Amino acid sequence: MLPAAPPGGASSYTSTAVSARVSVPPNDHVLLALPPTAASASVLRSLRSEGVSVSPVSDGIGVLDAVRTRDPALVVLDVDLPGPDQAAVLAALQAEAPNVPVIAVTPRERRIGLLGQLRGDRDDFLVRPFAVDELAARIRLRLRLGPAMENTVLRHGELVVDTEFGDVTVDGRPVALSPTEYALLMALLATPGEVVAPDRLSREVWSEPASPNLVQVYISYLRRKIGAERIRTVRGEGYVLEA
């Protein structure tokens, strides 16, 4: 059983503006199960402003009822939600909707206890405090991968991405990427060795027309972190992720 939540811990979200727009199909409805706080309301507004189909739930009983009636594509579940023990709610949710992925929100001190409950092929977790753009990136990635994802580790040469935890390593060393940089890397990694046009990267990463200059700027950021030689520019066509 997970330990009791610290007083006020569930309100520690960072309600910053979403910097990486969420690109999800319009029918992919997200159930946002967060405590009824001003910070939670800000997260809800930010996601909706980015075009995410999302509905709020503020207690554990409501989560299970909403899963039965709304058929969500994904559930964001805070382990400090009011109501029944959330370890039991999570277990019931996984049993009743086995194909629905869950992003569990947890304070850092409860992370270890939570990991044993998560399904490595479907679920994810996010440690509080977090920025809204980080949650947006996790939502986008989890919906893109789908519920039946089997291999959570992607490799391309010495570049390794653990999509379960969002970890990236290059030549065995860890690399810290922003949500936008991570989304850009995943877009390139979808077709490694092939040219990816800037307008395609624009659609997949920003979900709206982005200037070629903006794409180029983030390509340069990514090159600095994973190695300039790993992203080749094909003049007039786009970018290639090299091994």
Rank of each mutant, 00 (worst) to 15 (best):
M1D: 13
L2R: 00
L2D: 06
P6A: 15
G8D: 00
G9H: 03
G9A: 02
A10H: 07
S12G: 08
T16M: 01
T16G: 05
A17V: 02
S19V: 03
R21K: 10
R21C: 08
V24P: 03
H29C: 07
V30F: 11
A33Q: 06
P35Q: 07
A39L: 08
S42T: 09
S42E: 11
R45F: 07
L47G: 10
L47H: 12
S49V: 15
S49C: 08
E50N: 14
D65Y: 08
A66T: 13
A66R: 14
V67S: 09
R68C: 08
P72K: 01
P72T: 04
A73T: 12
L77D: 03
D80W: 00
P84H: 11
D85R: 12
Q86L: 09
Q86G: 01
A88P: 00
A88H: 09
A88E: 00
V89R: 01
V100A: 05
A104S: 12
T106G: 09
P107S: 05
R111C: 10
R111K: 10
G113Y: 10
G113T: 12
G113A: 13
L115S: 10
L118C: 05
V132Y: 05
E134R: 03
A136P: 06
A137D: 07
I139F: 11
R140M: 15
G146Q: 13
V153C: 04
R155H: 01
G157M: 07
G157L: 03
E158K: 14
D162F: 05
D162H: 08
E164F: 15
G166S: 07
T169C: 15
V170L: 09
R173F: 13
P174A: 08
P174R: 15
S178I: 01
Y182V: 06
L188G: 08
T191D: 13
V195I: 09
V195M: 03
V196Y: 02
S202R: 05
S202K: 03
W206S: 09
S207C: 08
P209T: 01
A210T: 15
N213Q: 15
V217H: 14
Y221N: 13
L222Y: 02
R224T: 04
R224H: 15
I226R: 02
G227Q: 07
I231F: 06
R232Y: 07
T233C: 00
T233F: 03
V234M: 06
V234T: 04
E237C: 07
G238L: 01
